[in-house]
Design a protein around this nucleic acid. Structure first.
Lengths: 373, 373
DNA sequence: CTGAAAGCGCTTACAG
DNA sequence: CTGAAAGCGCTTACAG
């Protein structure tokens, strides 16, 4: 394939000269006003077809690709894109299947509306620079999975644009969507107690923005600034306490990143305990996968030697070996609804809902079984 | 959590009034010129610390969150974001693990550079509207996995911005990056012939923008407008022909979408053939997974009854049951390098490379075995 | 250390 | 059907 020589030439020229033609130049070339050229692109009914064609021909000749989006955006006070703010490294959004599904949903919503989706890194651990946030040209924000004390959340809100909060504590005046993390987590733990387990271990993803891997005591758990972490641990706690198990005795291993590899460390620490837990609850499937992997490497069997329950029900959970018992939540729908809630605000319709809680459920598969201990 | 009442109030006000404060208003409030307010944000060394603080206080009072990104972008002729153009539905980018890894790599590059990443749907099948593309406020484009005859590619290039082509035929003046799809595919097929297989079936993802699922004859294969499809099929062809197997006799089943579910259909069609193929080559791991699933449901064993080789080596390939023999390609690195090649152009450095081919290799795992037929 | 002026590229009433 | 004028919100030499 090759594009026509004309535009290829023009591209090279521009690369050297560093500037593109403007609407003004096209107008001069055709011998009309800028308004007319603008109309040729934006309001075809405002000029004769013949003139419109002449405009486009001149544009092509000059290598003019149409009105500059930034200038148009300034004039129209619309950028045509929404921003998604996500915790820490942006690449992380792509590494976590649950986040990927969430963004899949958001992107369906933006596509419906003909909007672009601007991904904004919440700042790497090192350089948490709000600059990129403040300079993001968007019409609104989806704020996803940020620590609740993260100054970037406030910074985003300060831009006074429509926004939607996802999996975060509500903030007055900002619609939010999520799940009842605590209730869902309770389901996971209750499933295990109902199978007779009394000896537990928990593998959790990070509790705070800058935390390190290791055991986390109750104070640390309760002070967690990621809502899902805090709420899920509380759910486990309440279910186990209700079954007469002392939460203070349940080891909670925090993994600094929500990737399977990190759970290997957790497994090492947890399997070395005496007595060894018969049941492990993980705050994500990703961690459950990594844990299962490590258990198998250690020569133990799931669920015979140790039961595992995850959280998220990502697609791989069903295909895992053994298939993972986990909590299902509708990730794609969460993204879709979040996107639509934001878009409804952009259109200055009333937001369809203001505080949405999506349903969750326990999915029983093969990774947890009755204990004989 | 709650933000301070002041800005919370301001946000609500703005939601009603529909307008935010401007730099001009801040200047008036402080009693200085706009230049000074601008300097407070952009060139702290240009004014006294005391004045700068007064500016920020006034800004906060007025609910001014800093210079408007669009206006700044227009003035500076920089948007601070790059665009990623991807085939068809944007949500598809998130559904395909290989694409996800690619974008993960791109996002690492954009983060390094402090840029945003704007995801641009290549247009749904229905409304392939270049409008969204032409109105994307970005400084350059990564063009990923578009059909080579897709008018959006030309439209993008016509914007005369820095661009990088990924997994697509080269276009003069535009750096590109990819793999040698044909050679890599040959490796996959040769592995199978070396195991004694003589009876093949192929499961391919789509050959053209608007294709439907079904068997694809040679003419259709050679006319494929997705480079990876065309090149991989050619690779299989050349390896099999070299082994004395007539390619014309090899059934190629095209799946309209690169999702596991679609491969079930392919399996149904291919398994019904007499004689039944002993070896299946899939152009992606996603399709291989779906195929394996269907084979197992049909009561057959892999690799005993039928061998399967995939393409991509996504992480799940190693965890599949049996582990999938496949072709490895460095997805994340591809994205990272593509991103950096684009960013190098933005900085008006020479692009580091202009035609990059990344290495691939066969990864032998458990899904293909010697045939006894 | 501060301000007046020019201009980034466009769209939108409005008048003709 | 077409054009002159105003203005979207900012930054950058430049002069003081």
């Amino acid at each position: 394939m090759d594009i026509n020589p004309e535009s290829s030439k023009a591209r090279q020229t521009s690369r050297v000269s560093g500037r593109r033609a403007t609407l003004k130049e096209v107008a001069a070339e055709v011998g009309v006003s800028r308004a007319t050229v603008s109309n040729a692109y934006n309001r075809p009914d405002q000029l004769s077809e013949e003139l419109r064609v002449r405009v486009f021909e001149a544009a092509r000749r000059l290598g003019y690709a149409g009105p500059d989006p930034t200038a148009r955006g300034l004039r129209k006070q619309r950028t045509g894109a929404i921003g998604a703010l996500y915790t820490d490294r942006l690449s992380y959004a792509f590494a976590d299947p649950a986040a990927v599904m969430f963004f899949e949903g958001v992107s369906v919503a933006t596509e419906e509306a003909g909007l672009g989706l601007l991904l904004i890194p919440g700042g790497s651990l090192g350089q948490r620079d709000p600059e990129i946030l403040m300079s993001a040209a968007v019409d609104g924000f989806v704020i996803f999975c940020m620590a609740e004390d993260d100054p970037l959340v406030e910074a985003t809100l300060r831009r006074q644009m429509p926004a939607v909060l996802v999996d975060q504590p509500p903030i007055e005046g900002v619609p939010s969507i999520g799940i009842d993390d605590e209730a869902a987590a309770r389901l996971a733990a209750e499933h295990l107690t109902s199978l007779g387990h009394r000896s537990f271990g928990v593998v959790s993803f990070d509790l705070d923005k800058d935390s390190k891997s290791g055991f986390a005591d109750i104070d640390k758990q309760h002070a967690a600034t990621y809502l899902p972490s805090r709420a899920r641990l509380r759910g486990y706690e309440s279910a186990l306490e209700a079954a007469g198990i002392s939460w203070a005795d349940v080891p909670v291993y925090e993994c600094a990143e929500n990737v399977p590899g990190m759970a290997a460390e957790a497994a090492e620490a947890l399997l070395a305990l005496a007595p060894r837990p018969t049941a492990i609850i993980a705050t994500s499937d990703q961690l459950a996968f990594g844990f299962m992997e490590a258990v198998k490497k250690a020569g133990l069997s799931i669920p015979e030697d140790i039961s595992v329950v995850g959280f998220d029900d990502v697609p791989e959970a069903a295909r895992a070996n053994p298939p993972l018992t986990t909590i299902h939540q509708p990730h794609v729908e969460k993204g879709l609804r979040a996107g639509r809630m934001l878009i409804a605000q952009l259109r200055e319709e009333e937001p369809p809902e203001t505080q949405v809680l999506l349903p969750t459920r326990l999915v029983v598969r093969g990774s947890a079984a009755r204990t004989d201990h």
